[in-house]
């Protein structure tokens, strides 16, 4: 009992024959939520090794923070750690996973890929530039990949946030808008035009030049 009351916000009132703990329900709920975060096992690439595996293993030991119960099903998890690059094909799945999780749910974006696209920010035609384009993110942990210690710092920040966060009267206070609204006067045609411009100087291939180049290379290959 002693250990728990030390950290649990509340006052111990001594009464004859023992003591009574006085606390607020909000504080009690937030305290227990913050100390029993169950992460979803979700890792798409390199960051998963550092953030999901090395943290859970012997040296770093995620269990010290009460977050070691990794759940493979989003329905049982309440912390989504986005560890790794999100590409356009995976984005709808990530959104689905997020929506399958029960409230309250928390999201951490670890690694520069999940923050802004990371090393794949320029010239990549598939990466989503940051997980917050798809789902709301609570805590960002920078690094490529972040060290396990950095991840822990992020986790402690999240715990602090939860402890000070919602109350029964104002549930969901923490949440932010899901999608940023489009600027005024922007039409679908404008977006299409912008995309076309982007493609024409990035990924589009000049077919005539490519055929000529190809012929040159194949003639060179013969001598090779």
């Amino acid at each position: 009992m002693g250990v728990i009351t030390d950290k649990l916000p509340g006052v111990l009132e001594p009464v004859p024959g023992g003591s009574v703990l006085l606390t607020a329900v909000d504080q009690l709920i937030n305290w227990s939520r913050s100390n029993s975060l169950w992460p979803l096992t979700f890792g798409t690439s390199c960051c998963a090794i550092e953030v999901m595996m090395a943290t859970g293993a012997a040296r770093h030991d995620l269990a010290r923070f009460g977050a070691e119960v990794a759940r493979p099903s989003p329905r049982q998890a309440d912390l989504l750690v986005i560890a790794g690059t999100i590409v356009k094909r995976m984005a709808p799945r990530l959104r689905t996973l997020y929506e399958q999780m029960a409230e309250p749910r928390y999201v951490m974006a670890t690694g520069s890929c999940a923050i802004c696209g990371g090393p794949f920010m320029y010239h990549s035609y598939t990466t989503v530039r940051g997980a917050d384009e798809i789902i709301p993110v609570d805590v960002y942990v920078p690094g490529c990949p972040p060290r396990p210690e950095a991840f822990f710092y992020g986790l402690l920040t999240l715990q602090k946030m939860i402890k000070e966060g919602e109350s029964i009267r104002h549930p969901g206070e923490r949440r932010r808008p899901v999608l940023a609204a489009l600027p005024e006067g922007m039409t679908l045609d404008d977006i299409r035009k912008e995309m076309q411009d982007l493609l024409s100087h990035d990924a589009n291939v000049n077919m005539a030049a490519a055929v000529a180049e190809g012929a040159r290379y194949s003639s060179e290959l013969k001598d090779f």
């Binding site: 798409t44 690439s45 790794g84 690059t85 590409v87 094909r89 995976m90 799945r93 090393p119 794949f120 320029y122 010239h123 990549s124 035609y125 598939t126 990466t127 990924a203």
Partner: peptide, 22 residues
């Protein structure tokens, strides 16, 4: 295709040193 990041295409935009880190 769920983690296709286009590394080979990105390689064409940088020099050889830059490709090593990709």
């Amino acid at each position: 295709g769920y983690i296709h990041r286009g590394i080979e295409k990105m390689g064409e935009h940088g020099n050889y040193r830059q490709f090593v880190h990709l």
